[in-house]
């Protein structure tokens, strides 16, 4: 989440992906990510298919391939976490290096595993990006309710979203105000001690929390004045049409096919 990027990932457009009911979308994305993760490592035949599914979805939803790739790039830093696999998995030697007197053997099997994990992570993130770029948050809440997530939790998540942008703006203003006063002088060592800096940051967090707790008091009063009685109620959502159920089932079927295909090419049969 970089500062220069607008916080809300939703992209307002008109497309079949935007129009599809959020309950179907959320379920399909879950099933799809599950499928991606169930596919055995190193069944390379499936990977271009997954990639082309994602790219097609990017085109159909109007997000565009470029934006999808750009937004999903930040899975890259995580490669470092899986990098040791290259050397720790024993197998056919790819190359050997000697570092500080230790010799490390990179194996083809390690490379295989590493690539599989990174690609799966990348494809999963792409699917999630397509979901949030085409679905308003209200839709995601609707999906969560449909998945029978308890009402209280959905209500908390909904309220959180309502105040998220206000509080993020407050946090940013605090940071700006702090850095505006973080100056140095010639011939002085600036910055203060690390513990002091941490403590000031703690104060800022406390300040933010206190302001938001007091805000929640006002929210509560506003809710009371509109008839809130402690019971969390939500609108009943429209019943899904037959066509929408069919879309869901076809989507799941495609995922199952992909999985079976991967097992076949992985040599399971």
């Amino acid at each position: 989440m970089s500062n220069s990027q607008p916080l809300n990932p939703y992209i307002q457009l008109e497309s079949p992906a935007h129009r599809l009911d959020s309950r179907i979308k959320l379920s399909l994305v879950f099933v799809y990510i599950l499928t991606i993760n169930l596919i055995p490592h190193a069944v390379w035949v499936v990977f271009p298919i997954l990639f082309s599914v994602n790219l097609s979805l990017a085109v159909v939803s109007g997000i565009g391939i470029k934006k999808l790739l750009k937004r999903s790039l930040w899975v890259l830093p995580f490669v470092i976490a899986v990098f040791p696999l290259l050397f720790s998995i024993r197998g056919n030697t790819w190359f050997e290096i000697t570092l500080l007197g230790f010799s490390f053997t990179a194996s083809w099997e390690g490379l295989e595993r590493l690539l599989s994990i990174v690609l799966k992570a990348w494809f999963s993130i792409q699917a999630a990006i397509i979901l949030v770029s085409t679905t308003k948050f209200e839709g995601i809440l609707k999906g969560l309710r449909w998945m029978k997530i308890p009402k209280l939790l959905v209500a908390v998540i909904g309220l959180m979203w309502r105040y998220l942008f206000v509080l993020v703006a407050e946090a940013k203003r605090l940071l700006v105000a702090r850095s505006s006063r973080s100056s140095d002088l010639p011939d002085f060592h600036s910055g203060g001690s690390m513990i002091w800096r941490a403590q000031v940051t703690g104060y800022m967090a406390g300040n933010l929390l206190l302001r938001s707790i007091e805000r929640s008091d006002r929210v509560y009063m506003a809710m009371l004045s509109r008839g809130y009685d402690g019971e969390v109620r939500m609108d009943n959502d429209r019943v899904l049409s037959r066509k929408e159920i069919h879309i869901l089932l076809i989507g799941i079927l495609i995922c199952v096919c992909l999985f079976v295909l991967s097992l076949y090419f992985g040599g399971a049969f």
Binding site: L152, A155, V156, I157, G158, L159, M160, W161, R162, Y163, L164, V166, L167, V168, E170, A171, K172, L174, L175, G191, M194, R197, A198, V200, T201, M204, A205, L208, L209, S212, I213, R215, S216, V219, Y220, M223, Y228, D229, G230, E231, V232
Partner: peptide
């Protein structure tokens, strides 16, 4: 806990999310 806590939990969650943006230089 009572009904009072629902908005408190929601706003607190938002504040913690925002609070995670507050950082300080270690070194």
């Amino acid at each position: 806990i009572g009904e009072r806590e629902v908005p408190l939990m929601g706003v607190l969650a938002a504040a913690i999310f925002a609070g995670q943006m507050l950082n300080f230089t270690v070194t």
